[in-house]
Amino acid sequence: MTTPFTVIIPARYASHRFPGKPLASLLGWPMIHHVCRRAEESGAARILVATDHREIAHACREEGREVVMTRHDHPSGTDRLAEVAERLGLDDDQIVVNLQGDEPLMPGRLVRQVALDLAAHRDAGIATLATLCHSLDEVRSPHAVKVVRDRQGYALYFSRAPIPWDRDGFSGAAGAARSPGQWLRHLGLYAYRAGFLRRYPALEAAPPEGLEALEQLRALWHGVRIHVGLAHQVPGPGVDTPQDLAQVEQLLAEQGPPA
């Protein structure tokens, strides 16, 4: 039995570090086109680009993509998805995957994996994925978000700090820290039930959310369960700055040109 799901790709023009990022050229195509291709590879029943900018909308419509124009003042991509879910009248149980518009190397199989993971865990409002850390530098980096799960795979906490803290290894009392493979790095790929998305903008922000700059902490603070699956593969890097383009373009070239 198949589980239909919708992919919504939030694509904001006014990025502080990289304005116009969704339109950046990769192999001669706007980056948003590559992201849409990853969504298509997932087997999603419906794919929408949610944007606040006419140029992004035009580029998507030229390729036959479905576009929803949204407000420009959303504080997060989740708020943008919430507007789309409300405007489209999605059923509460409809599964919506948030695929960021700067992830042209996110494998379609992971997009599908996170959607099916949420479908398999009826008591979860959100599902997401994680991979094993590969170095202690990654464990310690504030740019790599770590997650600790319970025995059933539900998130206990997300942090930019190296959690769990290796008391003896990190203090130097017992020599080198343990293998980095004992830490989980969170991937910014989420599946939501549409009913939760509609509730999200009205939820009070969580105190640790502002400190960590991690919006998923709001869901945990309000008692929403988040299931964290182990990703079937490690995705390529996203595009945060103009300097990331060359590396991502080379990796895309190795995969072959977009169809």
Rank of each mutant, 00 (worst) to 15 (best):
S171P: 02
D150Y: 10
L118N: 13
E212Q: 15
A177H: 00
R122N: 02
G188A: 14
Y192M: 02
L217Q: 04
H134K: 12
Y157E: 14
P142G: 01
E209Q: 15
D117Q: 15
F170L: 15
H222V: 08
G181F: 01
E215Q: 10
A115T: 07
E209C: 03
G195S: 07
L136C: 02
Y200L: 12
E215A: 14
I163G: 13
A206P: 09
G169P: 05
L217Y: 03
S159A: 14
Q216V: 15
A202Y: 12
F170T: 02
R149E: 14
L132P: 04
L214G: 05
R122L: 04
D168I: 00
A173S: 11
A124K: 09
R140D: 05
S179N: 09
A120L: 03
R218I: 04
V145S: 05
P180N: 01
I126P: 04
P208T: 12
R198T: 05
A219R: 01
I163K: 11
W165Y: 11
L211T: 13
E215I: 10
G175V: 03
R122W: 00
P208A: 12
W221D: 10
P164N: 14
E209H: 05
G175R: 00
V114A: 13
R160Q: 11
A173G: 02
H186Q: 07
R193I: 13
A177G: 11
P164Y: 10
A219W: 02
G181Y: 04
V148N: 09
G181C: 01
E212I: 05
A205D: 15
R140C: 07
Y157I: 07
A173T: 13
D166Y: 04
W183E: 03
Y192P: 00
P180H: 00
E212W: 14
R178D: 06
L184I: 00
H143D: 14
A176P: 08
G175L: 00
P208N: 12
A205Q: 14
V147Y: 08
